[in-house]
């Protein structure tokens, strides 16, 4: 660089600057310093590998540690299949309920002005900041034997706590705001001019929603459904409190994993876990595809 420099410059322009050129020519470190970049990338990769990557490998290795046959047996076990079915039922219910709620609530809060909007938005968020164990507890305190609805339910022979409805309710509770949270910012950013224009032209509520609002939230809705599915499928604490761990009846897949693990049936526990890992990875892939499409 220095050679080229001296050749190219007229003497008079350089003036007495020959010394300063030499002083100046060393490129500053900050100008071309990939060291920090590689350190930071290295730290990130290491952190993610230790925290996220290796646990997944642990599941895979342990699930297959007793061979393929043992794996198949654990996965196709009657109780595993029943647990899977209950998990699917709870997940589908939670997604359905929370989608309906999310659409109505997001529409309400983004298209209308009324007193108490802020409070309503805060209330919807509550399940986010609550321990899942407490989420389970509130249903025991409501519908359980000691709950204020306990006597009524007993009189009509309805079982919620330690039964399938309880599992579903708890799952709905912990995933309650998920769809709403994805829809609300999108609808809010869109404003309400289009809806107002359509309403002034005489369109009805359903037509407005279907033709105008819905196209805006398609991807956000799908995104919210995916997040809701992930959380509902994996819910453990809340369901653990309320299910009563009745094998084959109120056991979801995560609870089944716990039971197997506590029975020191480690291989089976990891084998069942691997089903959940596969589902989780599929959800992550779906999430990334949807996010990519949205952009």
């Amino acid at each position: 660089m220095a050679d080229k420099n001296e050749k190219d410059l007229d003497r008079d322009l350089v003036g007495d600057g020959i010394h300063s050129i030499q002083k100046v020519i060393q490129p500053h470190k900050a100008y071309s310093r990939p060291v920090i970049k590689y350190i930071l990338i290295g730290v990130s990769v290491l952190f993610l590998a230790v925290m996220l990557g290796i646990p997944l490998i642990v599941v895979a290795v342990n699930a297959l540690s007793d061979g393929w046959a043992a794996y198949k047996e654990a996965v196709l076990d009657e109780y595993t299949v029943k647990a899977l079915l209950l998990t699917l039922l709870a997940t589908v219910s939670a997604v359905a309920v929370n989608t309906v709620f999310g659409v109505f609530a997001a529409y309400l809060l983004s298209k209308f002005y009324f007193k108490g909007r802020q409070i309503l938005a805060t209330l919807i968020d509550i399940p986010f900041s609550i321990s899942p164990v407490i989420a389970g507890l509130v249903f025991i305190l409501t519908f359980g034997n000691i709950g204020w609805m306990g006597d009524f339910l007993k009189a009509h022979d309805i079982k919620i706590v330690f039964a399938v409805p309880g599992v579903i309710l708890a799952t709905i509770f912990v995933t309650f705001p998920f769809v709403f949270r994805e829809l609300f910012p999108v609808l809010n950013a869109q404003g309400k001019d289009e809806e107002e224009a359509a309403a002034l032209m005489g369109a009805g509520g359903f037509t407005i929603f279907r033709r105008i609002t819905f196209p805006h939230i398609r991807w956000a809705l799908l995104y919210g459904v995916i997040l809701c599915t992930a959380r509902a499928m994996g819910e453990f604490g809340a369901v653990s409190v309320i299910s009563g761990h009745l094998r084959g009846k109120t056991n979801t897949l995560p609870l089944h994993v716990e039971i197997l693990y506590n029975e020191f049936n480690t291989t089976a526990a990891f084998a069942v876990s691997s089903i959940l890992v596969i589902l989780a990875v599929l959800i992550l892939i779906a999430r990334n595809i949807v996010e990519w499409k949205r952009k």
């Binding site: 660089m1 420099n5 190219d8 410059l9 322009l13 350089v14 003036g15 007495d16 600057g17 300063s20 050129i21 100046v24 020519i25 060393q26 490129p27 500053h28 900050a30 100008y31």
Partner: peptide
Amino acid sequence: GDILIDGTRVNDLPGSK
């Protein structure tokens, strides 16, 4: 090309200097 400030070529000098 070259950028000169006060007769000194500054291409390789960071802005802060």
